[in-house]
Design a protein around this nucleic acid. Sequence first.
DNA 1: TAACTCCTCAACCAAGTGGTTGATTAAATC
DNA 2: GATTTAATCAACCACTTGGTTGAGGAGTTA
Lengths: 119, 119
Amino acid sequence: MSDQLSLVFAALAEPTRRDIVARLAVGDATVGELAEPYAMSLQAVSKHLKVLEAAGLVTKTPAAQRRSVHLEAEVFDLMTKWIERYQRQAEERYQRLDALLDQLDEDGNVIPTDERKTS
Amino acid sequence: MSDQLSLVFAALAEPTRRDIVARLAVGDATVGELAEPYAMSLQAVSKHLKVLEAAGLVTKTPAAQRRSVHLEAEVFDLMTKWIERYQRQAEERYQRLDALLDQLDEDGNVIPTDERKTS
DNA sequence: TAACTCCTCAACCAAGTGGTTGATTAAATC
DNA sequence: GATTTAATCAACCACTTGGTTGAGGAGTTA
């Protein structure tokens, strides 16, 4: 499961991690600040951040006592491109199906080309 | 992890399942047809389909010997809405940051409002 | 009805995941 | 320099996951 798209989808499959992303969209924060609202331990949040980091969704300032975490918006493009591709493909397919249904008469028989209504 | 958004992201975190979605975007298929290209057992593919079904990404014709599987394109909206929201938010934040940087002089000091260039 | 085919269900297994606690590193402050 | 504070590392645990094989259910066809 090492390709980035898999990592990104897996990272966002967790409500806590989506919540963290939502918070980081507002502005950068330290690990402690991010952990504060949750009942779980700081270590658990640190683990979640590592998952987000591995997916490329988040980066941390390399070395400091209070490490600032911030969102990398570009990675979203990976997902949207994948999604849009198949969403569009599926929608087009249904349009073709509609078109095909238009070519059938009330009994479900194919109407010959020369007898079809010209739109 | 029972909310649909989590289920959808988790479902698409698997390359095999994304591959199945890609195939279904082209057109409906039976379970056997979907399983054919993979080295894994039919049961394994059936499990993958169950995950996709639970996420609402896919539906099966209720009961037939050769069950037709087809893609539900609407569910993609859930994801795109979530993604776009935070992507937009993050991008706007960077625009505000740029604006803020415009308000600083070369030494990094804040330029008082009445001394700023009027755009 | 019997046989065959397509698919699902059930039990099992190795590996991964989300959480815990305890110890440790490294920066900031006294 | 010693102490506090912020964050990570490491080991552990219960549960989930992606795969397997074997049996069973429900249409289809002989």
